[in-house]
Simulated assay, not measured.
Amino acid sequence: MSTDFQHGREALGARLRELRVEAGLDGKTLADRLGWQRSKVSRLQNGRQTATAEDLAAWAAAVGAPAQASELQARLRGLESQQRHWRRQLAAGHTPVQDRYVVEYRRTVTMRGYEASVIPGLFQTPAYARQLLLQNAELMRSPRDTDAAVQARMRRQEVLYEPGKLFRVLIWEAALHAAVGGREVMAGQLDRLVGLIGMSTVELGIVPLGAPLSLTPKHGFWIFDEKRVIVETINTELQYDSSDDLALYGRVWDQLDAGAAYGPQAHRLIARARGAIAGT
């Protein structure tokens, strides 16, 4: 369990205790009202157990403050957003993080992803990945284990060849034109994308720059088996697994997908970016 998650759970427990005290109830009386074991009341208000939305609604009603249920449930949703700060994750370099992703991707059967500014790691060439890892190590001032990290990122791509998996990935066209590592690196990376079109385990869509969209391109995100969402910011990796968050990110992906180009159309957009690089 992450430190951030535990701190959030303890803060929620403190709020539950506060509501109980304000109602003039001791733990035993509250447990009796709820029909719970007294130990459950203790675990919840001491941050040793994660409450459910139903637990919080029942607690609010039992202390005579049903209007507080929505506030408590909002705290729970915030708790379900687990944060992993990059500075801590990268303390030993990029390789441990890449190795963790290898395990996570192997456990995943179906994935929906979207990237707005970069080619996804799942599709990167070694040269492209190397440039990004070097840039990130410089930015985060983390140990430079670039060779090992590139190898680990390439191992992640082995899942693309496993029968029964499906990776539905959207890339905003702007990412095809972002010059990472120079002309040769980008040319090789775009050629790699072309080679993915038509694979049985990959559905690659390109969201054109001029496509009419019902929402702006947003930030990148990945939905794992429709059970959790991972969002990467500059300093933090966020994880969401509540039904509301999954539904929200699913809707965003669907709306972006509605404007995406696939197959020959996607190939033409990649070729256009390839031609622009060759002309520079």
Rank of each mutant, 00 (worst) to 15 (best):
M1I: 10
H7I: 03
E10C: 12
E10A: 14
G13K: 01
G13S: 08
G13F: 08
A14C: 07
R15G: 05
R15Y: 02
E18I: 04
E18N: 11
R20L: 10
E22T: 10
G24W: 04
T29V: 11
L30P: 02
A31R: 01
D32R: 09
R33S: 11
L34D: 07
K40N: 06
K40G: 05
V41Y: 02
V41D: 03
Q45F: 04
Q49G: 05
A51N: 09
T52E: 10
T52N: 10
L56M: 07
A62W: 02
V63R: 00
A65L: 02
P66C: 08
R77I: 08
R77M: 11
R77K: 12
E80A: 15
R84K: 09
R87F: 15
A91D: 12
A92N: 12
A92M: 04
H94F: 14
T95M: 06
P96N: 09
V97I: 08
V97L: 07
R100Y: 12
R100Q: 14
Y105I: 03
Y105H: 05
T108Q: 07
V109S: 15
M111E: 13
G113N: 05
A116H: 10
S117R: 01
V118D: 02
I119E: 00
P120L: 01
Y128H: 09
A129W: 00
Q131R: 08
Q131A: 10
L134P: 03
L134W: 02
Q135G: 15
Q135E: 13
Q135I: 08
E138I: 04
E138F: 06
M140N: 09
R141N: 15
R141S: 15
P143V: 11
R144C: 09
D145R: 04
V150T: 02
M154V: 06
M154W: 00
R155I: 01
R156W: 02
V159E: 06
P163R: 02
P163C: 11
G164H: 03
K165N: 12
K165C: 12
L166M: 10
R168A: 15
I171Q: 01
A174F: 11
H177I: 01
A178D: 06
G182H: 10
V185N: 01
V185S: 03
D191G: 13
D191N: 11
R192N: 01
G195S: 12
G195C: 11
L196S: 04
M199T: 09
G205L: 02
G205I: 02
P208D: 10
G210Y: 00
A211D: 05
A211V: 09
L213D: 04
S214G: 13
S214Y: 04
L215F: 14
P217V: 12
K218L: 14
H219E: 11
F224G: 09
D225E: 05
E226L: 06
E226H: 14
K227Q: 15
I230A: 10
T236L: 07
L238G: 11
Y240I: 00
Y240A: 08
Y240G: 07
S243M: 07
D245H: 08
A247D: 15
L248P: 01
G250N: 04
R251H: 14
V252Q: 10
W253G: 01
W253P: 00
D254L: 06
A258D: 13
A261I: 00
Y262V: 13
Q265N: 15
Q265C: 14
R268F: 03
L269Y: 07
I270C: 02
A271P: 01
R272M: 03
A273C: 09
G275I: 06
I277P: 01
A278T: 09
G279A: 14
T280N: 06
